[in-house]
Amino acid sequence: MKIFSVIIAVAVGVFVLLGYFIPASALIAARSVLVSWAILAGGFAVLVGAMNLAQVHFMKVRRRDRSWSYSLLLIISLLSTLTLGLILGPANPIMQAVVQAVIFPVEASLMAVLAVTLVYAAIRLLRRRSDLMSVVFLASAVFVLTAGLALPFIGQLPILGDMLGPWFSSVLVAGGARGILLGVALGALTTGLRVLFAMDRPYGGK
């Protein structure tokens, strides 16, 4: 059984990969069918993920783990939102209100917490790791922020805002980012090939 899953995974991977590079109509058609199946399976996986989430928190409530009351709140919210969604449909104004008045603000507040966290982390960076790269990192961050600053009445800072800032972003920052992305792309390529050749099998087996 395991060998069949490996053969299917490898064959699908090869077809999809070739479909990207070789513009043969049969390959492109096969690729689009396989990718649409993957998207369908991905949609089902969301349901699996939600069930897994509920299961974890149900166990926390049953065992009276630390912070179990939050888990209970999560299960109640999950079930009530699911029931409402199934009865009313996702386009219903009540469902829209749940998304816009609860989920969006909660995520936005976490974003705000993140902004504070990052400022705090930047302040503490030199205490945690006082090396040349940390100094360069902090100096670059301060420089880019200052160059992008718009003051009342003056607008952008002269020279810094209209010459040095754009040069810094388009030459140094873009060059560095491309270097990092090239490294990531090479890593991604070999990782993908290891999975494609079934050397790594995260789908069970090896």
């Binding site: 982390a121 930047a122 990192f137 990092i180 490294g183 990531v184 890593g187 991604a188 070999t190």
Partner: peptide, 17 residues
């Protein structure tokens, strides 16, 4: 960039692979 500033040990670029 976020992890470089905030993590005790960050892996940059291809190091994660």
């Amino acid at each position: 960039a976020v992890l470089f500033a905030s993590a005790s040990d960050a892996l940059i670029g291809e190091e994660m692979f």
